[in-house]
Design a protein around this nucleic acid. Structure first.
Lengths: 404, 404
DNA sequence: ATTTTTTACTCAACTAACTTGAATTAAATA
DNA sequence: TATTTAATTCAAGTTAGTTGAGTAAAAAAT
């Protein structure tokens, strides 16, 4: 397998199709079907994908030759010749994800099925591009080495950084924002340093993609992910694809106003959701309530100790979150809203427990396949895993129409 | 030209590509390019669409043969052989749009360039499916007859009805809601009656598509449209395609809460945006202020007379709208937010004038191609025109991946 | 004024990838 | 044991895009 087989053509605007692009699209269509329905036989895939059995057969031969798919016995119990079943070959390829924060980097390796095969965290003294790019390069090299994988099976690297990217009115400075990255082409820098395809994405979108690849949303084509980072982000998957907006800054849910004339926010507004329902908001609330967080206490430990201030924060945050979730439901009509990110599971569960979702919502329908709100499944490595998931997602998920 | 050339394949999930589907995709790619850049020559199209000149040449020959494209002389002033320029042939095809309201139907015919070639409004005594479907059928037949068009050039019909569709917590009854349509397959009913392809869509989405086809947003791939109907709707175009959510109910912006514990809304919540910033909201406000609307006064006439209550309503509505627009900007990161629909232009302009948009928004960036908020361009026929625009949009805009 | 360069476009041969139909295999059912 | 059903393969056929040579026409250079 050469990595060029996965090269995504890039360009401005929508491009036409030809034999080669059809093949590349069909490879992804087959892979996407197998991801969602494995194990599956050739005839079954052909029927579902609108292709002839012969076409699917040829594609599967190739994919198997490349080590991406493998057989898992025959399907029994049905009439007719039993179908040879295929599934992902977990070791056929892998992807790297890196989360860059102002103070640290987290690196995770995922195999083709989205399972974590390695992860490592490293402090970052200087998060400027000049220092961070080489540091990330070194970290990845060490991670691949330690994982025992062959670099030729590397599909690419997904870099997760806090947005918003480019020029925007939210470029205030705060703990969550990286400085020095404003005027460089981040993707190009990393592609040069890493010599592999690179995707740059924000944490919330990466987390959403990760949930779809191998998490809570593996069967959904349309859902939203509320990401608890330092601030708060929203990742949106619609029609199986992440939605990034005109300039890649969609999903800035943290600065939605949920209380008119509420708490002041560094962004200049008052009453932003983020000032209530985020880790940052929690710390500010607890500090104001006189809780000393320096002695090793965490949000999770405070919650487990049923600390009154923590319970009070949960209550208030849940109220603001409920409002925001209602909004998201009415605007995006998702199959579900997933809560996750850099927040302990117990805290998220407590928040979900306390939610009081609006009745007047398109989501408040009797027949639902999933609850209105669910918890994410990838825990604290979510962002780094999400980065790698983006790469695998791009390898698998079909898109003929390419946008800028 | 046979209408089967435009038949969209439908199915569940993503389908593979083959020669025929490639051709169909490439036809759309060429048409979409010409729409956005007309007039254009073959070589120029080929370069931009990632196809060979020969492929584009063959497609253009076909499109010209079908009457969809026509030549408009040669491009002069450049070196080399002057390129033959192509543009849409306005009369090559047309589409019908129908807006169905509880008390009336509006029908509009658009030519291929999105220009209105005919429109007619008719009262509807009984908006039940049994009565309305035949009434619409008759109206369309009369409209086609009166426009002098040949039915064989009809691309299809777009029916615009107030959502939300299907089961949802917003199925309260109110003036804007049609009853009796809950448990029938609306698309099938109309396709049977009209014997042409049919799209069912809500007013906001249809209006958004219309703005992109031949309006304020003709060069945008990502924008939002806030539609003033009886209530309030949001149409979202992202990546050139309308976003409808998991069940087609995305964009219910009317029931976003912009004032905690505010005015009661029929949906069960308090403080919904719709109770302030919608026609319904305006009438309620004015009635409460003692303004008698029965004597032929309209929102526009009150505004022109600088009626204090009207000015007060504008002020309040603009405040709530500003909040909602800020939200929409932060969540979708659109190129612009367009305001339009069944509200007089002067009123919309007054609202825009009074907006106080949040500073903390990803949209508040110095370098913008468009203002943060703009007014829509299709006026009171917006919804019906939008229906027809949906059909033309589908004919033109490429999508290989087909979703359910 | 003539030649060169540049660009658009057409014709004909070529190729990649999907489709079709016949043949083969293997399990369940009659 | 024969029949039916379904999966898969083989080989030929089809569609549509690509490639390369050749023509046409305008601008720029000589």
């Amino acid at each position: 397998m050469t990595s060029s087989e996965f090269m995504t053509e890039e360009g401005t605007g929508i491009i036409g199709s030809n034999a080669g692009r059809s093949r590349s699209h069909n490879r992804r269509v087959v892979l996407e079907f197998v991801r969602a329905h494995e194990p599956a036989g050739r005839a079954e895939i052909a029927r579902s994908c609108g292709l002839s059995i012969q076409a699917v057969s040829n594609i599967i031969d190739t994919l198997q030759g490349e080590g991406l798919l493998r057989t898992v016995g025959h399907r029994a119990g049905m009439r007719g010749k039993p179908a040879l079943q295929y599934q992902f070959n977990p070791d056929g390829a892998f992807a790297v994800g890196v989360e860059i924060r102002p103070d640290a980097m987290v690196c995770a390796l995922l195999n083709l099925t989205g399972k974590r095969i390695f992860s490592r965290r490293k402090k970052l003294k200087d998060a400027s591009p000049e220092k961070a790019v080489p540091a990330v390069t070194k970290l990845i090299a060490a991670a691949i080495e330690a994982s025992g994988r062959d670099r030729k099976n590397l599909l690419g690297t997904g870099i997760v950084m806090p947005g918003p990217f480019g020029e925007s009115g939210l470029s205030y400075s705060g703990a969550a924002v990286l400085s020095g990255w404003e005027n460089i082409n981040i993707k190009e820098e990393f592609e040069k340093a890493l010599a592999c395809p690179v995707i740059i994405e924000n944490d919330a979108t990466a987390a959403a993609v990760s949930e779809r690849l191998a998490g809570t949303a593996s069967e959904m084509n349309s859902f939203c992910f509320i990401y608890f980072g330092t601030g708060l982000g929203l990742g949106v998957i619609a029609g199986g694809h992440s939605q990034r907006g005109a300039l890649g800054n969609a999903g800035e849910i943290g600065h939605i106003i949920t209380e008119a004339n509420g708490l002041p926010c560094p962004c200049g507004n008052f009453g932003c959701l983020e000032t209530y329902a985020s880790r940052m908001g929690a710390f500010a609330f607890l500090e104001k309530a006189g809780v000393n967080m320096d002695e090793g206490a965490t949000l999770a430990s405070l919650l487990e100790a049923q600390h009154p201030a923590m319970l009070e924060w949960i209550e208030g945050a849940a109220q603001h979150l409920s409002q925001a979730i209602g909004m998201v439901e009415n605007l995006f009509d998702p199959e579900t809203v997933i809560l996750g990110g850099a927040m302990a599971d117990v805290v998220i569960d407590a928040l979900i427990e306390k939610l009081d979702l609006p009745k007047g919502s398109v989501a408040n329908r009797p027949a639902r396949n999933f609850p209105r709100v669910m918890r994410g499944s990838s825990g604290r490595l979510t962002a780094a895993i999400g980065g790698a998931a983006m790469i695998i997602h791009r390898t698998i998920t079909p898109t003929v129409t390419v946008f800028h």
